[in-house]
Design a protein around this nucleic acid. Sequence first.
DNA 1: TTGAAAGCGTTACCAA
DNA 2: TTGGTAACGCTTTCAA
Lengths: 341, 341
Amino acid sequence: MKTTMRQVAEAAGVSAMAVSYVLHGTGKNVRVSADTASKIRRVAEELNYRPNMLARSLRNRQTNMVGVVFQHFGRLSEQNPYYPMLLNGIMNGLFAEGYTLALCPQLMQGGSDEAILDGRFDGILWARPDFNEASIERFKTAKIPLVLLHAPPGSIQGLPTFCADNEGALRLVVDHLRDLGHHKIVFAITEVDAQTAEGKDRTEAFHNAMRDSGLTGRVFVWNQQPQEFAMYWAANRNQVTAMACFSDTLAGNILAACRSLSIRVPEDLSVVGFDSSTFCDRTAPPLTSVSQPVEKIAYEAVMQLISLIRSSNDAAPAMPNLSVTYECGLDVRASTAPPRA
Amino acid sequence: MKTTMRQVAEAAGVSAMAVSYVLHGTGKNVRVSADTASKIRRVAEELNYRPNMLARSLRNRQTNMVGVVFQHFGRLSEQNPYYPMLLNGIMNGLFAEGYTLALCPQLMQGGSDEAILDGRFDGILWARPDFNEASIERFKTAKIPLVLLHAPPGSIQGLPTFCADNEGALRLVVDHLRDLGHHKIVFAITEVDAQTAEGKDRTEAFHNAMRDSGLTGRVFVWNQQPQEFAMYWAANRNQVTAMACFSDTLAGNILAACRSLSIRVPEDLSVVGFDSSTFCDRTAPPLTSVSQPVEKIAYEAVMQLISLIRSSNDAAPAMPNLSVTYECGLDVRASTAPPRA
DNA sequence: TTGAAAGCGTTACCAA
DNA sequence: TTGGTAACGCTTTCAA
C-alpha cells in the first residue's frame, strides 16, 4: 500500500494540510513551526511517503505534461536524423522546465483528437505537418495552449507557429543552381508531402524564386515507385538538369534511383536536399542541402508553449498570434555542379 | 468551463452513475433502459461532455501510461538510427494497446527516480543501459511492473530483461575475422559504454569467443579523443589487424579517425560495427556489422510489460523472471578483408 | 498557528 | 432497474 498524506499527518500528530504545506509549500495562510516542519519531514521519510501526482493534478488542474504529436504518416525514418534532432530540441526545452513529454495514441494515430481536451495535457505541441481546417478549428475552440511546428506563417490565424523560412531557403537553392548555370530546374516532392502545408509553401516558394530569376519552374510529384522515376526521366531528360527536393530523405531516394538508372550525379543531374543533416555527408555523392536549425526551432517552440501555459491562468493571455520563421543556409556539397554543355 | 459528468446527469435527469455506466460501461450492477441510455448519450453530445482522464485515473488506479527511459547520457545521436528504430518498436506496441508513452524529466535526467512511484505510470520500460545495484533494488521494491532492455541475462535477478545475444554475436564476429585470417583482434569500446552492463557483457563475450578460437583478445577503451586513437595506433599497429566495435557509432568514429591518419580500411585494419543499421551502408567503406532486431526487441519488451501490467491486478503475478535474448546476424560489407601478409 | 470540512470528477458499494 | 453515499489523495477556504 502506498502511504498517503493523511497517514503521514496522523503519524506526525498534525493535520493533512500541515503536511501539504511543509512538503509542497502550498496554502498561504498556513504557518508551521520549524519543529513541526522537521518532524513532518522526518515522518514522511520514515513512512516512505510519495505524493500522488494524479491527485495533485486533479486538484490543481495542471499536469505538467505536454502532448507532442510528431508522427509523420507512420514510422520514424531510420535514415533521416530529423526526428532525433527534433526530439533533442523538444526534450531540452521540456525537461529543463520540469515538463513530461507524452505521446498518446489518439493524437499520434490521428483518431479523434479528444485527448487534447480530457485534462491530461497542459499544452500541445503539434509537430506534424498535416492538419486541416477542421482540426485547426477544434484547436482554437479547445482553449488549450497549442503551438504548431511546420506551419508556414499565414497558413494559420490565431495560433503560434514556428517554421523554417521556406521562401528564403528556396531562393538560396535556386540562386545556387542558377549561378552554376542551370535553367531547367525542377522541384521534387512526394505525393504525401505535397499535401502538407509546408509542402505547399515550399512549392510556392520555389515558383517565386524561379520567377524572380526569370525562369519557369516545374514540379515533379513522385509516388516513390522506382519505375515512376524511370518514366519521368525518360520523358523529361532534356527538360531538367537540376532537382531541388523537399527533403533529404527524398533526395537520398532520388540519388539511389539515379544510381540504378546510371544517371550520373552531378554530371547528368544536380540534386539538392532539404535539412542538411549528417545524412548528407554519407550519401554518394555527398548531398548539397538546405540547412535549417531544427533543434533550435523545436526548442523555441516548446519554450513558447510553456510560456503560454504559464500565462494561461493570467488575465491577459500572451500574444497567441506569434509566428516565427527561421533563416536557412545552404550547405554546398558534391551533388551539385554546372550542367553539361 | 469543462462539462462534468454531474452536469450531464442533471441535464438528463438521471444520476451520475447512470452516465458513467452508459458512457464507460462501468458498474456491473447497473442496468439502464435503452431510452435512458440514448437520452444520456444525446445530452452528453449536446453539452460537449469530455470525460476527465485525471479523475478516472485517480479513481481506477490506472493511467494507461507507460514511462519510458531511453536517454543514453545526454542526447540522441543524429547519426545512429538506433533510437528511431527503438521508438518505432515501442510505439507500435504501446499505441496498439492504447497506452500513452511518457518521457519524464526525473526519469530521463537521472535525478531521483521517485517518478516511478508517484502513480503516474502503470509500468516502466527501462531502455537505458546504465543501472546500478541501488536502482535495481528500488525497482524491485517499487512493485510497479518494470521491464529492462539492454540488460544481459543474469545481470539482474527477478526482473524481466530483453537483450541481444551478445555471446553469439561476438562469436560470429570473431569467427568471421578469424576465417579471413585475422589473429590480432581487438575489441573497441568507449569509456562510457564500458561501464554499462551490456558493455561488460559484450567485452566478456568477446574474450570467450577469442578463447574458443584459440586466440587472445585485447580491449581498446577509447575516450573518443582523436589524438588518443593516434597514440594507440602508433603503439599497437603491429598488434592489431582487426577491430570489433561495441557500436556502429563507435565504428563510424574509428573509420573517421583512420581516414585522418591515412590508415586504410580494410587493407590496414578491418572494422566491425554493432547494430547494422542503414548507417552502415553510408559509411566509407560500408561497414560490416552485427545485426540485431532492435525494433522487435523493443516491441516484445513492451508487450511483456503490458501483460505484466494487466496481470498485476490478478492474484498470480505472471513470471517476473523472464529473460529473453535475441539471435544476431552478421552483415558482411566492405570494411573487413583478409589482413595484409 | 492549527484543524475541519468541502471540494476536484470519477467510480464502487450498498440499499431501495 | 435505479440512486445515494463514500471514497481515490490532495489543496483551499474558512473557522477556531
